[in-house]
Write a protein that binds this DNA or RNA. Structure first.
Lengths: 350, 350
DNA sequence: GTTTAGCACTTGGACTATTAGAGTGCTAAA
DNA sequence: TTTAGCACTCTAATAGTCCAAGTGCTAAAC
């Protein structure tokens, strides 16, 4: 257990280090402390903090740097709760416009705003209902053997894809198959639909089409698109600015990670804990992956009532101003929930 | 004018430097030359080359490095035309699969293959007819006030976007407007359509809708998507590996460039000269832009007969093995043209 | 018992020499 | 025209010096 004074000192070390990036020494630290002690006293206390593994030295006579554990302690116990400035708050409230056509636009814009505010990389995932169901599938012929396949879910998601029919297909047969799909699959959860697409559906389709593979492939691909969590990433390039390290190989690995939406959603889902607050994962807490050791991930869920919960997140350097970043994410989460609730009501319940 | 020997020496300098990245000195160079001379002779010749601005010294007693002009001379006169290896050729012929559903898939895959082969960043733009015309516009209602707008061009491009209608709109009025658009605009070039969308069309639409802006915005946005050159970029991340420089700010600038498809198409269009061969732009020849000074851009058009011409390109470091890269791009260009011709015939003329 | 002043000790960074190696340019001979 | 030889230049690496910043410890002060 730390004394009050030790806490203050740890707090000051983290603040100082996250703002300057330089290891902090006892002499300079005394000026930043809210009480008056000598540098020698600070040194004594720092020995205790170091014994507890909260701070490190880079070498025997350098200033101290917070360890991962130190950051964690800071985040858990020493944050400044009033960190979000009036200015940040204003930006958050004003930068979300008010004439979006689709939920996805708002969510995607959110990722951009969040990355601009923090100058880190930001993510946004739109609210997700637990059981999304298929509510319709259509094929609209466009002439020239082109058709567009349209799939609608009851969450309002629309997914479409155009393709060209092979020569000599029987258009009536195709229509029958579309009718079959609607009869058999509408109203079922997407996961269920995917399952049946591999079991009984192909058999039934052979009544109408000799080789159903091509057709079902198309349905399947549109379906997969509709079912996929759609992550929006803002400020990808900001990762380049963290200047430290910058091992190009690691960077490539991280960027590859960002492009695999499945592995990304794994990362963010991990702690969407029930209380819905803001969560911070530091260094290796983010993933087993080595390459993220010097990064921290701040995630938050936002709750849009019956329309489900979404996730926003910010990925920045371990050495980040946590109070501010967390404050921003938290404020943004609330604002986004409010806005989205309005849009959902507007789109669905008017 | 250079003597034969000077050419060989320049060629050897470029080859050596592009493969090792180290300035090349006279002593080492004699071993690489196809004739036997002393290092002193080479030094004398190098003075001539330097006078001609083809090679540089980094400082008064360092080896020589090709200048931009030297690379240019090399590319124009000293390439090894038989550079593409059997292995590369095999990869090119085999990596393009043969069950694509859409032209865009092939083109996008091409960018990936090309970037893998060269380990640089690659671009692919699909064939473009000179005058793409609007061939149809539809609104398909999906229930729940959702509609999907579908736009088809005579080049077979299909663009769709779903959105939610505001409350209380007159669906018949909307249908009238769609009919109006089809009557008035189908068969015209897209550029013409865009123009008229800002002149006489809005006036006509007000006959049916009181405030046409919202609706026309949607049509406009789908139209813009359809009209846009769609670049595919492969191996974005490979830019990170060029190790030199690596100024994060420049990198950000370049990546931002890659994301603006309009500025990118400017870059590539610039020299799609009629003869359709492979073109090399070195350093500041690529653009006025400073940041691309250390890069070379290799572009090539590929010709799919009446279906138009497309572009492929590779962006790598100025210090690249030109013979191989050019050979690959050239071979790929021919293969892609052949494949695409097959697909176009299959899709449109069967 | 805390706190502090004082001091010896450690370390990295900045600066300076020094040296070895690679390369050039020039000259004079082949 | 080519080449051997040599003086000269510059970089990169290494080692030495010095300084500033920081620590740990001890003994005195509070």
């Amino acid at each position: 257990m730390l004394t009050q004074r030790q806490k203050k000192i740890l707090q000051a070390i983290v603040r100082q280090y996250t703002s300057t990036g330089q290891p902090v020494g006892s002499k300079h630290l005394v000026e930043k402390l809210p009480f008056k002690v000598s540098s020698a006293t600070v040194r004594n206390e720092m020995v205790v903090l170091e014994k507890n593994g909260l701070i490190n030295k880079q070498h025997s006579s350098s200033g101290r740097v917070p360890s991962k554990k130190g950051y964690r302690y800071y985040v858990d116990h020493l944050l400044d709760p009033s960190a979000v400035t009036d200015n940040d708050l204003l930006v958050i409230q004003n930068s979300l416009g008010d004439n979006y056509q689709k939920i996805d636009e708002i969510v995607s814009h959110s990722a951009d705003i969040l990355s601009n505010l923090t100058s880190y990389t930001a993510f946004a995932l739109k609210p997700e209902q637990a059981d999304v169901r298929l509510s319709g599938f259509r094929l609209v012929p466009l002439g020239d053997q082109k058709v567009i396949a349209i799939l609608v879910t009851d969450s309002g998601n629309v997914e479409s894809q155009s393709f060209t029919l092979p020569r000599n297909v029987d258009t009536e047969a195709i229509e029958s198959v579309v009718r079959l799909i609607n009869d058999q699959l509408v109203g079922h959860e997407l996961s269920e639909v995917v399952k049946r697409l591999n079991t009984d559906i192909p058999i039934k389709v052979t009544h109408y089409l000799e080789s159903p593979e091509g057709f079902l492939d198309i349905f399947d691909s549109v379906l997969k698109n509709a079912a996929r969590d759609r992550f929006y990433v803002g400020g990808r390039l900001n990762l380049l600015g963290f200047s430290d390290h910058q091992d190009p190989h690691d960077l490539q690995t991280i960027y590859r990670l960002l492009d695999q939406s499945d592995s990304l959603s794994h990362l963010l889902d991990a702690d969407s804990k029930p209380d819905g607050g803001v969560h911070v994962r530091i260094g290796n807490e983010i993933a087993d992956n080595q390459v993220l050791d010097d990064y921290s991930l701040i995630t938050a869920t936002y709750d849009v009532d019956q329309y489900g919960k979404g996730i926003i997140a910010v990925l920045g350097p371990t050495r980040m101003p946590y109070s501010r970043t967390i404050g921003i994410v938290n404020a943004f989460r609330q604002e986004l929930a409010k806005r989205l609730l309005g849009y959902y009501r507007h789109f669905y319940d008017s």
